[in-house]
Design a protein around this nucleic acid. Structure first.
Lengths: 347, 347
DNA sequence: TTATGTTGTGGGAGCGCTCCCAAGGAATCC
DNA sequence: GGATTCCTTGGGAGCGCTCCCACAACATAA
């Protein structure tokens, strides 16, 4: 009775062959309009959908792209960065009729177990790797397994790697210049982990900017693991060397830093100006409102997908690595409005 | 030379048949220790992994579970809820050797296009539906397509549906009782959207709690779309009727509400106490620290996976719907410490 | 007329796996 | 000893699709 719905069966009902149905389903040319109409009618009536696994097996591509978020990032799931990234990637995939497979490494999960699942042939066509660590072993594994991939971040691989990144150095540099312009004399830095490319770049970009502006940092540098707690304790330590401006490498750490400033009975931005990085926390969430270097997270996600798609299609004429500009969004914590008032430039 | 690696080829190299290799790969019994060792050696030497699509086609299951986040939730990606949920689901899947496929509906994407992709046979074994709307059409589609699914939330379907939810009513009720206990007289409510089960339940739970405690709300009710902005404007409106306590249906809206209170030159908790729902914002992120009804988001995600797994395995002896308890976590915005001080009960 | 495309259609082969049956050999039972 | 069972192994069939070649039907050119 209810014969299993497949190309053969649809063909039987439409009075054509399996091959013709396949052509209609895949929108191939060289099908007469009449035949096409007949077949489409049967498909619509039955609600037939081709079997994905069979298609994958025969065509050797799955239409699935993996997004890999390694273990250290597990805690990062508390910040909106990955949500945005996923949203961007997902949007792009919807447009390309691709499916997103998400691989999150839990701390307790053996990394190699995940890797072997990811590179499982016939599961995904390619992967996007996020939160890349410096010298990430995952990248070598992917290359060894001949799995096409795109990295989000700046990979420090000896080989050429397709990548998408935000301009971390430039953004951090602009924070330094901003402090200089506001007349701050004793800058400090709370850097993200230096085992990530973003950590390295935000640190060096800021230091370069300071040097350019003739400011010195004199060891007022700490490093934190992206969390509020880390920002808070790093800031508490830094306050001993009385900085008047701090560049904090992530919004979440900046929230912690503001907390520490408040606890020391100091005022932000009057006593200590703060500029952070990400531009990802809703503006109204913290008081005073955070001045932050914004990066286009969603666009990064979208672009990673389209780049990977190009790689998969062999469309290698496109650029190998893309860097999105970042933008210093001035709100309250940097004290720009304050400075303007003092010099009578603004209200 | 490099013959394609498949069961046949591995078998050839190990001097056994395709079938035997298959048995070893799948850990089936009834393979002699010696044969097993031989085959495993060849597999290890070659790095062979069985082809997922071929396996899916033959076995009629994919080992992939879909997680669906409908369009309205797109904006919600700004809050950590979905990150936690994904993390929980992902952890559970890693443990069960399952792969997570994420389907996010963008506003601009035609819902039915996604649906047809989701129910594509041979893609996923089953799906988890989140952020369910009341009378969600998606649920009917899934049923029609015979796609096994589990709902996160409280589905209001005429049919029996497997579901996992947090005790929204109970949590909201406890907020009301807490206000009553603290002697607040003029409670108000900022409810989440009433087209979601969480919105309906948090609203009714709070109102029930008030009734129980003999407090009336007199129209001091607004509704917001989960965002800070909505919380802020709802609170601004409510302040006209001078409430002394507000239950806000989500942490993000509570952040906006606090902002509105501050802008009205009122003090929280002295003038207006605030209790919110979710328990998801890092405690230090806002000042004063948010008293919130915490729900175990990660556990909900994990449980949804294990429930779906049970459904897929035909292990229907397990409960059809699971409700996780919620817990009122007292911090600063409710004014409990304040009340205690006043009555001399605590420091 | 015959040679030469062009378009539409059908069907064989094969993707790599699982499922299942059969068969040989070893172990066990009466 | 022969009959019965169990364990181990091999291979046919088939999952539903794509790829490719063959071929019929028709148009076009010499």
């Amino acid at each position: 009775m209810a014969a299993r719905l497949n190309l053969e069966e649809i063909g039987r009902r439409a009075g054509v062959s399996r091959s013709t149905v396949s052509r209609v389903v895949n929108g191939e040319p060289n099908v007469s309009a009449k035949t096409k109409r007949k077949v489409e009618a049967v498909i619509a009536a039955t609600g037939f959908r081709p079997h994905a696994a069979a298609r994958s097996l025969a065509s050797r591509q799955t239409g699935v792209i993996g997004l890999i978020i390694p273990s250290e990032a597990g805690t990062l799931f508390n910040d909106p960065y990955f949500g945005r990234l996923i949203l961007g990637a997902s949007d792009a995939m919807n447009g390309l009729d691709l499916t997103l497979a998400l691989f999150v490494f839990g701390e307790e999960i053996d990394e190699s177990a995940i890797i072997s699942r990811v590179v499982n042939p016939g599961l995904v066509d390619g992967v996007i790797v996020t939160a890349t660590r410096m010298a990430d072993p995952l990248i070598d594994h992917l290359r060894d397994a001949h799995m096409p991939f795109v990295v989000i971040g700046r990979p420090d691989s000896p080989h050429a790697v397709y990548s998408v990144d935000a301009d971390n150095r430039g953004g951090a540099r602009s924070a330094a210049l901003h402090f200089a312009q506001l007349g701050r004399q004793r800058p400090a830095l709370i850097a993200p982990p230096s085992n990530t490319s973003a950590g390295v770049d935000r640190r060096s970009g800021f230091l370069d900017g300071l040097a350019e502006a003739g400011l010195s940092i004199d060891g007022r540098v700490r490093e934190g693991d992206w969390t509020e707690g880390a920002g808070r304790s790093a800031m508490a330590e830094l306050l001993a060397s009385s900085p008047d401006a701090v560049f904090v490498g992530s919004d979440r750490m900046a929230v912690g830093a503001l907390q520490a400033i408040r606890e020391a009975n100091l005022q932000c931005p009057q006593d200590v100006a703060v500029v952070s990085f990400d531009g990802i926390i809703p503006a109204d969430m913290v008081v005073p409102r955070l001045t932050s270097v914004a990066q286009p997270v969603r666009e990064v996600g979208e672009r990673a997908v389209s780049l990977l798609k190009a790689v998969l299609d062999g469309d290698v004429t496109k650029a190998e690595s893309v860097v999105f500009p970042t933008e210093l969004v001035i709100r309250e914590t940097c004290g720009a409005a304050l400075a303007a008032t003092e010099t009578g430039t603004a209200s």
